[in-house]
Amino acid sequence: MDGTGIVVGSDGSASSDDAVRWAAAEAVRAGVPLRVVLAYHWRWPGRPARAEELDRFAREHAETTVARSVTVARQAEPAVAVDGVAIMGVPADVLLTSAAKAAMLVVGFKGDHGFAAALLGSVAFEVATYATCPVAVVRGRAGVATGPVVAAVDGSAAAEGVLATGFEQAARRGCDLLALRVDPPEAPVAADLAASVARWRAKYPAVRAESRLVDGHPAQVLVDASRDAQLVVVGHRGHGGFAGLLLGSVGHALLHHAECPVLVLRGAPPH
C-alpha cells in the first residue's frame, strides 16, 4: 500500500466477510485500491519429518481462503480494485506491517483461526493501539446505509481530526453528521463545539450537521448513539469525556458493544 489504499484482515469467517464487504465499499467511496491480507501459521510440537508438506498445505489453504475473500469483495462492489495476499506470521504483526503505509486498516469484530475473537482478545486492540493509520473495527450493523456518522469529540487536539474525518465520511455516504461531546448541559463548551462544527460545515456544505452536549457515562453515550448510526468515529486517545478511549473502560465497552462499525483515528489531525 502506498498511503492511499485500504488493507482489510480476513480469515474466511462470516465476520471477516462482513469486514471485507465494508472495506470494499469504503474503497469504492474513497476511490482507492483494497488489499485483503490473511495471516496464517501451522504449529506442531517438535520438528515433524514432513514439515515442508505441512507448510505447503497451510499455504495452499490460506491462498484459497484469501482468493475467496477477494471474490467476496468483488461480489459486494464490482467496481473495487482489489487484490489479496496470504502471509505466514502472527496476525497482529502481519496486519500492522501490511498497513504501515495504508490509508486505513479494517478488521472484523471476531472470527476464526488467526483473527479469533478479535475484540475479545488482543488483535483488534493491538492494531488499534499501534497502527500508524486509522483502524476500522467492523461490528454490529455493518451493512446499514442509514443513520448519521457520529463523531465523538472532546477538548483534545485529536477532536479536530475526528470532526474532519466525520465530515468526510458523512459526505462520502450522503448522510448527516452528529458531533457528540460528553459534558453537563450547563458546561461552557457548547459554543466551542458549535464553532468547531461550523468550521467543517463550511468545507462540507452538503452535510447536515448537529452538535450535541450529552450528560452521562461516555461509554454508554457512544453505545447508545451507535444504535442509530452507520459509523462512530473516535480519536485514539483524548481527555475529558472520552479520556483514554482505547486504553480504559470507555474503549473496552465501545468496541465490545457498539452496534455499528467504529473508526479509530491515529496520527496528526487534518488542517
Rank of each mutant, 00 (worst) to 15 (best):
G244W: 01
V20R: 07
A124K: 00
A79Y: 01
A124H: 01
A62T: 10
P48K: 10
H217N: 13
L105F: 11
H236W: 01
A179M: 10
A191Q: 15
R59Q: 14
V197L: 11
A24I: 06
A152M: 12
V262L: 00
A49R: 11
V232P: 05
A171T: 09
A209G: 03
R50D: 14
E60D: 15
A195T: 11
A258Y: 06
V234I: 15
H271M: 04
V80I: 09
D17S: 15
A194K: 09
A195W: 05
V32C: 09
S13V: 03
A194G: 08
L247Y: 11
A136N: 01
V82F: 09
I87D: 01
P45W: 12
F109V: 00
C175A: 13
V20D: 05
G166S: 08
L213Y: 04
G241R: 02
T4C: 05
V32T: 14
V234T: 03
E160Y: 01
A92W: 04
G111T: 07
G248I: 01
S211N: 07
F125N: 02
V223L: 12
H256V: 06
G108I: 05
W200K: 05
A171H: 13
G89K: 08
V37I: 15
V264A: 02
A39W: 11
L38M: 14
A24F: 08
A39P: 12
G240P: 12
E77T: 09
K101G: 14
F167I: 03
F115K: 00
G12K: 07
D215W: 13
G235P: 03
A58L: 07
G114L: 03
S122R: 14
A145R: 15
Q220I: 05
V233G: 02
F242R: 04
F125Y: 10
G238K: 07
G161L: 04
P184L: 03
E160T: 13
P33V: 04
L213T: 04
A62P: 10
V127H: 00
V182F: 02
A39D: 12
A117V: 04
A202P: 05
H252G: 11
L54V: 08
S69Y: 03
D224V: 06
A170Q: 11
V250K: 01
L246V: 00
D55H: 15
V37T: 12
T4Q: 14
H113K: 13
T71H: 10
G3W: 15
P261M: 03
H236F: 00
S69P: 03
A159K: 03
H256W: 08
V107S: 01
V85T: 14
H217M: 09
A151I: 10
E160G: 09
G108E: 05
A225P: 08
G166P: 08
D93N: 10
K101F: 13
V234R: 01
H271D: 12
A171L: 07
R29H: 08
V127L: 02
